[in-house]
Design a protein around this nucleic acid. Sequence first.
DNA 1: GTCTATAGGACGATAGAC
DNA 2: GTCTATCGTCCTATAGAC
Lengths: 189, 189
Amino acid sequence: MSTDARESLLRAAQQLYAANGVAATTPRQVIERSGVGHGSLYHHFPSKRDLALAAVGRSVDEALASSSDALNAHTESRARIAAYLERPREATSGCRIGRLTADPFVAADEDLSASVARYFLDLIGLVADVFEEQGLDGGVARDRATAAVAVIQGGYVLSRATGDEEMMRAAVRGFLGLVDAPQRPEGDS
Amino acid sequence: MSTDARESLLRAAQQLYAANGVAATTPRQVIERSGVGHGSLYHHFPSKRDLALAAVGRSVDEALASSSDALNAHTESRARIAAYLERPREATSGCRIGRLTADPFVAADEDLSASVARYFLDLIGLVADVFEEQGLDGGVARDRATAAVAVIQGGYVLSRATGDEEMMRAAVRGFLGLVDAPQRPEGDS
DNA sequence: GTCTATAGGACGATAGAC
DNA sequence: GTCTATCGTCCTATAGAC
């Protein structure tokens, strides 16, 4: 079937991009992992860029959907934030989207860069909505959501750098400990 | 002079690694930027790995020294933390050390990976010392320091992804806003 | 120590048969 | 749609003259 080869190629590319990034992933690797032939790759995706656009776009959609699921798994806002922050992650592998910010192939392509930017802007929006539920002012909620997403992205960097899953957990504990501390009421000096 | 060529090569490599990473930086680029000849590069650094070890090691030392400077620019612990978090950064360029966690060339080399790991472990140690000054328990201080370093690394990712320096500032505001909230005394329920 | 010339291989991509 | 064969380029590294 024609969609099978295309599907295999996309899946293989997504896995290889997650492990090594786009720039360092070669057509040969995609071919070997997917099991299709050289000719098929260039039939379905005329250039490396076409494959990257499709595979990265799909990874972004999947990552947004699964973050959204974690945020909506509870009703109380504190539990929703904690569910997002404490979601199981293979932290020492790094974030498959976040790592693309350091990828030369992505940086050189406007459309690929736009996919990555959209991921983070949408994600921060989802988290900010939950902080607003807590009655926080919109600007404060957005700053706090940006910090929360940054803690996760930084946790990936630290866990990958040290090869230690515990770094992600420590960063999340450090952040959640602050969120759980009694908050100053609005307008207090 | 012999040290001049070596010095030029190292500086060029550091700049190129900061912009594009190690894997994507070719000998040709290093030669052109440094102004030395092809033969000189391979005289001073027999392989790409040798150049990378020297250049990355130096970038790590420089980054640790400048973080240490920021943390020691004040006496009061809150001001020291804020000085580290709010230090001027070219956030949209990404962290020159943090980006190496996504670099295939670094990942494939134990010694390069160890340099990057050392950077983050030492940096977290420096920040944790300041939180301990505030009277925090050692474990809590370390978690909070890990979160602080993660916020900066994540801020780099977010700023680079969106091309917006404001993302780093928002993440820092979000985190500092929590640190500045009145803290629950030790042992309180 | 620095130069030019070049090796051997992998890269992204294309051609044309089936 | 998939195959094999091949192109031109750039890569990292070496050779050997100066």
